[in-house]
Design a protein around this nucleic acid. Structure first.
Length: 584
DNA sequence: AAACACGGCGCG
DNA sequence: AAAGCGCGCCGTGTTT
């Protein structure tokens, strides 16, 4: 037994004041039921909602994490644990990774031929001020009925295709489990240190203002450094600096930090260049802090929206706020980094563990290359970047001291990532700091030593041209545009890495519920890393618990290379992560 | 006023 | 011939 389930709400954010006021269901025969919770109908209909979600019937939603978040809020209870769920939005991702939109109306039109114009009357009401709960009931009822029908229609269209395909089905089942785990993460949320965020914002605003004044002194008039047009005028007209690169679409002179850095090297006397970089850093940092403060709830908790199929590769994405791109304190190319991570802290009474897959991308590249020497190297723990550095630099590497070795190894590491993705000889030359001819020679050397890895991208690209798609190790099919077949390698690695972390999250969530009774919880996925909170009072048992987590994280039979994880612990803030050894 | 495109920049 | 890829958010500038 299965019904579609569509919740109507007063807004998009269940964790900041919005609530559901109605829902609709539709069974496979097209029977629709619409119920409301407003105007005195809550007492009567809440039990109906509870029994709908009691687990005896599968519910299918379009982005069902949204509906479940509101339903659990209305019921003040967790109901997902034993509820069989389906999600037509996820189904659409599994069946077709490349779609211009995932909107319910669009998909129902594209795959079911249902017209899209029914929302106009409703939107007109919302536009007059207010939200969907103010729309006249008969009109809303019609609208709800159509959305419930659309969802059921898509389910009846997509799900059989998924059931027919073993790979898709296992991928899809994992996604359904992940939705529940992800909902729990969003509900729990992450602690923001609001006091610190505020003072950081204020300091950055001051520094930004100060820098703006310095820029205006240099230029001699009022300018807006946020305007690239004005920047171009200052740099390329007024100061007559050379144009080094053009922008992608508009073919205007680029003014990004790379170009500005290069210009600054050429003209050490020019003060404006450096001031621009400073202005941008302070400005961006202040904006981030303001954004975090705006989004935190009454307790200073951030509840980001985690999209389990945010990227076409199957990676997750995060918004409101995006906690997957919080700036580190040590910028690699930015000379003025802002230590944004210092405003994130464990909840009182907790520490955070950050657990990441060690060298995930490279291990997957080696696995897919089937390059035996490198598979063996990973098994024995030999450092592949050092091996490559020796190959690239020869005697220079062997005679180098520890300091130069780090520089050479870093360069070799970059090349190790660039070559399997199809980088050219000149690109390799640039990465290694060699002239073009020598770069090409060393690339040839690399190709002779590890041909399967070096030609992996060619092999995968030709498959992509033939098939039009690539399948990850977890059964996700990713469409690859034929004229961009070279992207296939990256899609395969990124998509497979995403699958690894998805499986890990599901298993860790289950494990933590079992062994800590929900006292330790997952908080956030970051592509090859997960963040969790762990009660301080349970720290004496942390070795056991983390050992168990490691076990479930690295247990794969999909790969020829072993996987490993690394732990870091946070007791104060995310800027003070410390290595944490399992075997200590 | 709202929606969109673009460039710039942070992360993996 | 040459090319790593994937996201979200900010501010500007244009379009509707």
């Amino acid at each position: 037994m299965v019904v579609s389930f569509d919740v109507e709400t007063t807004g998009l954010y269940p964790f900041s004041g919005c609530d559901m006021f109605a829902w609709s269901t539709c069974d496979p025969d097209g029977n629709v039921v619409v119920k409301r919770l407003d105007k005195g109908r809550r007492r009567r209909n809440l039990p109906a909602l509870r029994s709908l979600l009691n687990g005896s019937t599968s519910v299918v939603g379009h982005n069902i994490k949204f509906d479940l978040a509101f339903a659990e809020k209305a019921l003040r209870a967790s109901v997902v644990k034993n509820l069989p769920i389906h999600d037509t939005m996820i189904q659409s991702h599994v069946v077709e990774s490349d779609m211009p939109s995932r909107e319910l109306k669009y998909l129902a039109w594209e795959f079911g031929g249902i017209l899209r114009d029914d929302e106009k009357a409703v939107k007109a009401f919302v536009k007059q001020g207010g939200n969907y709960s103010h729309v006249p009931e008969p009109l809303m009822r019609e609208y709800q009925q159509l959305d419930a029908e659309r969802t059921m229609l898509l389910h009846l269209f997509f799900y059989p295709k998924i059931q027919e395909n073993k790979k898709w089905l296992s991928c899809y089942n994992m996604e359904m489990d992940l939705i529940k785990t992800t909902l729990r993460m969003e509900q729990r949320g992450l602690q923001l240190n609001r006091y610190k965020a505020q003072s950081m914002r204020d300091r950055l605003l001051d520094q930004r203002e100060e820098t703006l004044e310095q820029i205006q002194n240099e230029v001699g008039e009022r300018v807006n450094p946020d305007s690239d047009d004005e920047l171009r005028w200052i740099l390329f007209e007024k100061a007559d600096l050379p144009v080094l690169e053009l922008t992608e679409k508009a073919k205007q002179p680029k003014v990004d930090k790379i170009v500005i850095g290069r210009l600054a090297e050429m003209h050490p006397d020019n003060k404006i260049l450096d001031l621009i970089l400073r202005y941008r850093s302070w400005s961006g940092g202040a904006s981030s802090m303001q954004n975090y403060l705006n989004l935190a709830d009454d307790d200073g908790i951030l509840h980001p929206n985690i999209r389990t199929c945010g990227a076409r590769t199957g990676r997750e994405s995060c918004s409101n706020p995006n906690l997957q791109n919080v700036q580190k304190s040590h910028g690699l190319l930015n000379p003025y980094p802002v230590a944004e991570r210092s405003v994130f802290t464990p909840r009182p009474g907790f520490v955070n563990f950050h657990i990441d897959y060690a060298g995930q991308e490279l291990r997957l590249l080696v696995h897919y290359s089937r390059e035996q020497e490198l598979i063996d190297a990973i098994h024995t723990g030999d450092d592949m970047h050092s091996m490559a550095a020796e190959l690239f630099f020869g005697d220079r590497w062997r005679k180098a001291g520890p300091k130069e070795r780090k520089v050479l190894r870093d360069a070799a590491k970059n090349a190790n990532f660039a070559i399997p993705y199809g980088a050219s000889g000149s690109k390799i030359a640039k990465i290694l700091g060699l002239d073009r001819r020598t770069g090409e020679e060393r690339l040839a050397l690399y190709r002779r030593r590890w041909p399967r890895l070096a030609f992996l991208s060619k092999e995968i690209a030709s498959e992509c041209r033939r098939v039009g798609s690539i399948d990850t190790a977890f059964g996700r099919t990713i469409r690859v545009l034929r004229d961009k077949a070279y992207t296939g390698t990256n899609y395969l690695i990124q998509g497979t890495g995403a699958g690894m972390l998805k499986r890990a999250q599901i298993r860790i969530d289950q494990y933590l519920q079992d062994v800590t009774g929900d006292e330790s919880r997952l908080l956030l996925p970051i592509h090859d890393e997960i963040v969790l909170e762990y009660p301080r009072k349970m720290l004496p048992y942390a070795r056991d618990v983390m050992g168990g987590i490691r076990d479930v994280m690295i247990d794969f039979n999909e790969f020829d290379v072993p996987m490993e994880v690394e732990f870091e612990i946070v007791t104060t803030n995310w800027n003070k992560k410390k290595e944490w050894l399992l075997a200590a």
